[in-house]
């Protein structure tokens, strides 16, 4: 389906949320976290039944998480279209309603984002560790506060060159 046609359909059913075309075949809908579940059900009923992924991103300066639900379709005419539902939640209370009752694939994705960033999906009954080791006691690793031991931000933005000391004898 062409982007224009899909935008027309979306504007009829989701007039309050202003869908925007961001790229070829990519339509983005920015919305509030409370309305996410309703919109998810609505675009599911239009035919967007195939969840690609959920991407949560940490923005430490705004103290927010951005959640990006990337949804595709397996209907014959909408296979090229992708809708991105974007919402932001505060880091002080990182919880929102699960969409795993809409898309079953969301359960695993939500579980991974819970593990990696600490986002709490209310209603998902299996928010436990998945990939991390059982004895992992540190903060969720994809938070920006969690630094890989060596490559800290100072090194990231450095300008001068650092030559390592050579200890080999040759």
């Amino acid at each position: 389906m062409k982007d224009e046609d899909l935008l027309r359909i979306l504007k009829d059913s989701l007039s309050a949320y202003s869908p925007v075309k961001v790229d070829k075949n990519r339509i983005k809908i920015s919305l509030q976290a409370e309305t996410l579940h309703d919109v998810a059900e609505k675009i599911f009923s239009i035919g967007f039944n195939y969840l690609h992924t959920i991407c949560a991103t940490d923005y430490p300066d705004k103290q927010e998480f951005e959640l990006n639900y990337i949804v595709g379709s397996m209907d014959d005419d909408k296979r090229n279209n992708i809708i991105m539902l974007v919402t932001r939640i505060p880091k002080s209370n990182p919880s929102l309603r699960t969409v795993s009752d809409v898309w079953k694939a969301a359960k695993l994705e939500e579980r991974e984002e819970f593990e990696m960033l600490g986002v709490n999906f209310l209603g998902n009954d299996e928010l436990q560790k998945l990939y991390l080791p059982e004895d992992w006691n540190e903060i969720p690793p994809l938070l920006k506060e969690y630094k890989l031991k060596r490559w800290v931000d100072e090194e990231r933005n450095r300008h001068g060159l650092v030559i390592e000391k050579v200890e080999h004898e040759h």
């Binding site: 560790k129 998945l130 990939y131 991390l132 080791p133 690793p141 994809l142 969690y146 890989l148």
Partner: peptide
């Protein structure tokens, strides 16, 4: 039971 070969590709990509 998965995660035996998790290597944190997403985190590494940021560095």
């Amino acid at each position: 039971d998965v995660g035996y070969v998790h290597r944190g590709v997403e985190k590494m990509c940021e560095y």
